[in-house]
Design a protein around this nucleic acid. Structure first.
Lengths: 195, 195
DNA sequence: TGTAATCTACCTACTAGTAGGTAGGTAAAA
DNA sequence: TTTTACCTACCTACTAGTAGGTAGATTACA
């Protein structure tokens, strides 16, 4: 991700990489304090509570995701290329370890014990991502690029699950390339002229 | 899961459901203490450190998984039925919320910050599960039941990722049925006489 | 058989350190 | 002069883990 110059931006950047590594309970204000050279109390000045901090972080993440997904749709006219570019984005993030896991996927695992203000935002991200996948798939079908076995909604869920599962496997096997190995055939399958 | 009568069994049972909900950093000895009505120090008598406790838990989990997977292979002669039964098992666990998430999948997300004695065991689980999937798929191909686009090893990874991703989505969307919605077509695809 | 030694499973009471969070002050910019 | 961004110094609650002890069962042996 990009490096912020403002203190609050640095706090969020640090919190993000700590959450990606260990989830909501895997970081503390003291960790952030040590990482960016600021006192704990000063972090509370920017983000009064931990729940607020993470909620804001998810807000920022969702906003960046929205911008990113929109720019994919501007950059590539073909839904197939849009999807391919989305997968390439994650492939790069994982390979250079800049963001080796989606923070919302990370937080979704612990959703039962997250403060509600965080949990609701994580849920919202899953809904918007599913919506985006669905619209891209539907557009692809309309243009005769995709041939789906199921409804776009279901295929979107399948693809999303593959992406998240592939992130987890890449991590568990310490093999960044595994992400692409898993996810590419799932993408290719949609393009095939099907039986 | 089964309910243990021994204290150490109860400790592991409680730790398991707490980890499934919130991961390694999502529970404390005090939580277990409160849940089973025993003093914190007594838990340390059975499991000197938290890392040892979770390592033992993963050992038990892996052992149960091995027994379970073996019994599937005894119970069902067809690789297709074995796979179907595996998916049904998780469908049930998620639906009745008895074990709504694989503890190793949960821990794999935080693997970077787990004590090595836990991390290595989680990795080992992923390897054995991948091996099991691979062998079932290979046997299915040999018997003419499956028609794979890729090598059994890769298809195994794809299936595994789907299962883990589907668990996450079921949780994020609070929709246990979503697990089957995602995972069943991935299974069916293998059976189809393909193009 | 009686008794001494050992073991198991638990207890109370404690430690050092960390968690998130607060009160109140300073210094500089708007 | 108010606001912003930081600070020191502190708080309470909780963390994993330890010290030291007790009740009762098991084993060893005289």
């Amino acid at each position: 991700m990009k490096s912020m110059t403002s203190t609050s931006g640095k706090i969020l950047d640090t919190a993000q990489s700590l959450i990606v590594a260990g989830g909501y309970n895997g970081f503390s204000y003291a960790d952030i304090s040590a990482a960016i050279g600021i006192r704990k109390a000063s972090i509370h000045h920017h983000f009064p509570t931990k729940a607020e901090l993470v909620a804001m972080l998810v807000d920022r993440y969702r906003q960046q995701a929205e911008v990113g997904l929109n720019s994919l749709q501007e950059q590539f006219s073909s839904p197939a290329e849009q999807l391919r570019a989305y997968l390439n984005f994650w492939q790069m993030c994982i390979r250079d370890a800049s963001l080796p896991f989606c923070i919302c996927a990370m937080l979704a695992g612990e959703i039962q014990m997250l403060p509600e203000e965080v949990a609701s935002r994580v849920r919202a991200h899953f809904h918007s991502l599913a919506r985006w996948f669905t619209s891209v798939l539907a557009a692809g079908v309309e243009q005769g690029l995709f041939r789906l076995d199921k409804q776009p909604e279901e295929e979107a869920q399948m693809l999303m699950a593959s992406v998240h599962g592939a992130m987890l496997s890449a991590r568990a096997f310490s093999d960044p390339g595994l992400f692409t190995t898993i996810v590419t055939p799932q993408f290719t399958r949609l393009l095939a002229p099907a039986r």
